[in-house]
Amino acid sequence: MIINHPLLGPRDASEFTYLGDASLIDRPDWQAEDAQQQFHDYLYLRDNPAGEHRELWFHEQGDRSWLVVTRNTLTHEITGVELARDVAMQRGRGR
């Protein structure tokens, strides 16, 4: 596979390390009342869609960016690649 890195252009996927669903960015609030349930759902449950999937890849043998890649799990077609840091900021993550 080839991942079209937003800063570097197309790079072979073998430079990257895969983590999983991009929802792993949305780490729950540790002080929530049902924090344990929330963390359970966050860490263990997956939509696992057959189709478009937003997922995290780490450019380990490259620029060390975490990326959010939008890829179809039926065809492997990639329709979007973003820096995960930008995505995380947009989703309100900060400090």
Binding site: T17, L56, W66, L83, A84, R85, A88, M89, R93, R95
Partner: peptide, 14 residues
Amino acid sequence: RHMEFCRQCLWPGL
């Protein structure tokens, strides 16, 4: 790798 994940994806404001 894990620490870069924490840095970029969980606490990008740090």
